[in-house]
Design a protein around this nucleic acid. Structure first.
Lengths: 234, 234
DNA sequence: ATAACACTATCATCTGTTCGGTTGCTTCGA
DNA sequence: TCGAAGCAACCGAACAGATGATAGTGTTAT
């Protein structure tokens, strides 16, 4: 039976890395769907196809596993958002739009990551939390900076920045609870819809005028030389 | 010692009701702060000042306790929102404004209620969930109806209604995670701020024009005879 | 041979829940 | 008015089940 042999060799060759990977993947999925508390190490072991004790070859315990997932997820999001605003340049409106769109899109694509990262914070101990919170604050600050700059240059109304940003973040986060990848909407469509509404909610009427009632798109904001509405079809 | 006697009588007379009340109050607080899973019946018993076994005189078990809290919280919110839209009449814009403001304000005032109702859903079994979900859908439908009506009469842009409403709901829900009653903002202020931004995000530019850059207030929407901005001080 | 991996068996601990018994207030008949 | 019965609240003790974690022992690949 060469097949069996082959699979054994393959399984053996990639055992370590593959198993560790599998543990993280299944743990993330189970934590996201059933919650951390209701997911036992036995559930994870069974999903991976291994005995409970074997998990400890790859992880330092259930709690450390959760922390790793949350740490990775938060860093991943932060990095994606950072590079998103770098791509669109310094304009605060474009930055805010890009932030919201990318944030929502990532939330759609990495649903479980988002769900775990934001639902299971209370399961971490103080030291673990102290490592995650600064990352979250960095994300917050990206939004705060964008909104503050846009207010400073007069294109956004002088809203309460923190309250506003918390609202935006909660909205983005909430996407993870209802988005279905097999549904009619792509991550980018959802992201653009929210970005459009967020900007409209904050812009001054004067700055809003040029956009009309058609959805604001990122290209409208990148075109800094001239802002003229209403020629969206080729 | 008449005081002692009096307090004994009072304590005895109100024992049952008071203890049950205390159980619900402390359970709600603990579930909200530490989560349902990490809160043991022993924690609740200790907080109430009673032994664990005594809890079962008043409740049918930990799970039933959670369900009661969630059921009450969700019904309470639904009822408040329903009467809020009744107060402002049939206009969909006024209704949406009132919904958001009241929803956020209630979320601030009943923080723990909101946190438990939306964080611990996964701890319910299927039959319990099936009793809560219709209540949530009723709440959703209040928003959906308001947005759809406003779109139908041309005052709101034709957005994706469900996506929009889910965003609003998530935003409102998120308030429970950061609002501090001892902070500088009243529940109504936060509610008004969000309601203002939500409406601006959805209105057509034509409908938005009359409001200018000053925050939209509910009175602006109730005054149906004439809409004139900018006379807000007496 | 060695190191990495996985298994069996077992542990202490914590969980929600139950049972039997005690207390003390209330009710009611004599 | 008095005392016995009834009752609801409470408690100590214990239990069965599940949990995360460990020790020791193969087993495999390099």
């Amino acid at each position: 039976m060469p097949d069996e042999l082959a699979s054994k060799i393959v399984a053996a060759k990639s055992t370590k890395r593959a198993t560790k990977q599998l543990i993280y993947e299944h743990a993330l999925r189970l934590f996201a769907t059933r919650s951390y508390a209701k997911t036992g190490l036995r559930d994870i072991a069974q999903a991976v196809g291994v005995e409970v004790a074997s998990l400890y070859t790859h992880i330092d315990g259930k709690n450390a596993l959760l922390f790793d997932l949350m740490d990775y997820g938060t860093r991943d999001l932060l990095q994606r958002l950072t590079s998103a605003i770098e791509d669109v340049g310094p304009d605060p409106l474009a930055r805010l739009y890009a932030l919201v769109r990318e944030h929502v899109a990532v939330t759609c694509r990495r649903q479980n990551q988002t769900l775990v990262a934001f639902n299971e914070i209370r399961e971490l101990n103080t030291q673990q939390r102290d490592k995650i919170i600064p990352l979250r604050e960095e994300i917050e600050n990206l939004y705060i900076a964008a909104v503050e700059d846009a207010i400073a240059d007069g294109r956004m109304r002088p809203v309460n920045v923190r309250v506003t940003v918390y609202g935006i973040l909660a909205m983005g986060r909430g996407v993870a609870t209802w988005y279905r990848p097999d549904g009619p909407l792509t991550p980018e469509q959802v992201g653009s819809e929210y970005a459009d509404q967020v900007l409209r909610g904050l812009l001054t009427t004067a700055s809003l005028a040029r956009f009309g009632d058609e959805p604001i798109e990122l290209t409208d904001l990148l075109d800094t030389t001239r802002g003229e509405p209403g020629h969206r079809n080729p």
